[in-house]
Structures are given as C-alpha cells and as structure tokens.
Amino acid sequence: MEYFEIAISCIFINNILLAQFLGNCPFLGTSKKMETAVGMSMAVVFVLVMAGVITWCLDTYLLKTLNVEYLRTLSFILVIASLVQFVEMFLKKSIPGLYAGLGIFLPLITTNCAVMGACLLNISNEYSFTKALVSSFAYAVGFGLALILFAGVRERINLGRIPKPLQDTSIGLITAGIIALTFTSFRGMV
C-alpha cells in the first residue's frame, strides 16, 4: 500500500515536470511532434530507473560509508553520463531496433535534470532500495504522461492561428501552465 501511495504521488501529485519543474528543456524541445515525445519518454523511463537504482547503491554503500557525501553531485553526474553512454553502446549492439527508435534522445538525457533530480530526491527523502526503485519508475512514468499529453495538445495548437508574439515557446508555456493546473486537482488523492 505504501508503494502504491509513492507511485501515485510521484506520477500525479508531485509530477516531475509540472509540479517539481525538472526536465523542462526536453519538455518544450521534444513536444512539437508526438513521435519525438514518445521516443523521449521511453528513453527517460529506461535511463531513469537504472540511474535511480545505481545512484542509490552508490550513495548508500560508498559515499555514506566513506563519509564523503559532499562528492554526491560530482559522482552522480558522472554515473549518469557514463550510464547513458553505456546504454547507448549496449542498445546499438544488441537491440538495434530500440536504438533506432530512441536515436538522438539518449545522449540528450545526460543533461536532463529530471534524471539527476529524481536521483537526488530519492536520497533526500531517505527512501529504502525498493521505494527508490518504485519512485524512480513512477517519476519516469509521470514524465512520459505529461510529455505525451502536452505533445498531443501542442500538435493541435500548431494548426490554429496564433498572434505572432505568442507563437511557439510562449503559447507552449501557457499551455503547460493550464495542464499543470489540471494536475493540481490530484492533490487531495493521497
């Protein structure tokens, strides 16, 4: 039940994009077409779960035992960057279909603050291993949900006639605001 609560809270209430403001650059950058939005969401689910598990182990077994927590920022970003590189090489060799699908989005994930942010949140919330695993997955699902919803709306917006100063990013941000407003109504759930 506790795990279910964490999952619901990470997907809807504390949605990583719309409530925590993490990962907004890919949110605006890859949401112009549904295809890219789906690709990005899949890449994030894949990397975030792995990064969440690995950084949790690193923090608990290495940094805390050696008493060097101040190296957290440095070591986390290195782990994430090399993980992304590794995943890229692995997929290219063994699952070329998935690799072609994710394409350019994999390397972009290194600077996606949703990944790093979720890993840091797992640590600051003092989650156990299984809780960290559940919350990483749920954050990634929440990211995908918000991104795909937003891409759907944005595809429709591009068909309409929009005043020139509001075009593109500007109307995108305002739309994101309205979607975020709908997500605030989940607050009473847990």
Binding site: L18, P165, L166, S170, G172, L173, I174, G177, A180, T184
Partner: peptide, 22 residues
C-alpha cells in the same frame, strides 16, 4: 506563486519580449 503560474508568467513575459523585439 503556485506551479502553474510559473509557466503562464514565463510564457506571457516571453510574449512581451517578442512584441518589443519585433
């Protein structure tokens, strides 16, 4: 000051800057 307001405020400020810049 809530989360949705951040998006809307930034979007509107961007629109103002586009208006001045154009």
């Amino acid at each position: 000051v809530e989360a949705p307001g951040a998006f809307v405020a930034l979007g509107l400020m961007l629109a103002c800057m586009n208006l001045i810049g154009s």
